[in-house]
Amino acid sequence: SEIVVAMYDFQATEAHDLRLERGQEYIILEKNDLHWWRARDKYGSEGYIPSNYVTGKK
């Protein structure tokens, strides 16, 4: 599975969105859409994140 790191904070506005915290790692579950990826955080929460807010883990 692909691990990404959040470059920016993202506040979830929709129920299906996942909040991003800058510097935290997330697991990508689905990339069915170019701009919104389904991800899981370290607490096990899942939701959609803006793909341009994250970068591949170095």
Rank of each mutant, 00 (worst) to 15 (best):
M7H: 05
W36E: 03
T13A: 11
E25F: 11
Q11M: 13
E14G: 15
K42T: 07
Q11W: 13
E46D: 04
E14M: 13
V5F: 09
S51K: 07
E14Y: 13
E25W: 11
G23V: 03
H35F: 12
K31W: 05
I27Y: 10
D9N: 10
Q24F: 08
I3T: 09
S1M: 15
A6H: 00
Y53K: 07
R19W: 07
F10H: 07
G44Q: 04
L20H: 00
I49C: 04
K58R: 11
I3D: 01
V54I: 06
R22D: 04
Y26F: 02
E21N: 06
K58N: 14
T13W: 10
H16C: 15
R38Y: 15
K42D: 03
P50I: 04
Y8N: 06
D9P: 05
M7P: 01
S1K: 12
F10V: 05
N32W: 09
I49E: 01
D17I: 15
D41P: 01
G47W: 03
K31M: 07
V54W: 03
W36M: 07
Y48S: 06
N52R: 11
L20K: 00
A12F: 04
T13H: 12
Q11R: 11
V5L: 07
R22Y: 09
S1L: 15
L34W: 09
D33W: 07
L29I: 12
P50V: 03
W37D: 00
E21P: 01
A15V: 12
I28Y: 03
D33N: 13
T55P: 02
L18D: 00
L20T: 02
A15T: 11
D17W: 15
S45G: 12
M7G: 02
D9K: 05
K58V: 15
I27R: 06
R40I: 07
V5K: 05
V4E: 01
K31G: 03
Y26C: 01
E25T: 10
V5M: 08
R22W: 08
L18Q: 01
H35L: 14
S1Y: 15
Y43W: 13
R22I: 10
T55N: 07
H16D: 12
E30W: 08
V54C: 05
W36K: 09
A6P: 00
L20N: 01
G56H: 15
W36R: 11
Y48L: 13
L29V: 08
A15K: 13
I28K: 01
E2M: 12
R40H: 04
R19Q: 12
S45Y: 13
T13E: 11
R22L: 07
K58Q: 14
L20M: 09
S45W: 09
M7A: 05
W37Q: 00
L20S: 03
F10G: 00
V5Q: 05
